[in-house]
């Protein structure tokens, strides 16, 4: 692991996902309080574009890049979180 890298625990992950949701759905910020790691895209009333907007926000925040075919597998917060962990683990954690 790189020096200064930190592990994104569940609480940190949830916080990141909530900020990404607020970026992707600025008109529905109140909904972010209801997000859990078990929330599906459909439960949150999100369309595909909003899910991709969340992923794009996270890419910029963490300086990672998801593969195109990975983006098509996002069904909910749990799959997005798994994807994030896979990429930050590949980088040696988040700095």
């Amino acid at each position: 692991m790189e020096q200064n890298a930190i592990v994104l625990d569940d609480a940190g992950m949830l916080e990141l996902l909530k900020r990404a949701f607020e970026f992707a759905k600025p008109d529905h910020q109140a909904l972010s309080a209801r997000i859990t790691l078990q929330s599906s895209i459909d439960e949150l009333g999100m369309e595909s574009v909003a899910a991709l907007e969340m992923a794009g926000f996270i890419e910029e925040e963490l300086d990672i890049q998801f593969h195109d075919n990975e983006l098509t597998t996002i069904r909910g917060m749990d799959s997005l979180a798994r994807l994030i962990r896979k990429h930050i683990d590949g980088k040696g954690g988040v700095k």
Partner: peptide
Amino acid sequence: ARMPRGAALREIGWVTS
């Protein structure tokens, strides 16, 4: 094909919806 990001994503998303 290539997955759009940012403004391109929003425009393509608008077309779809």
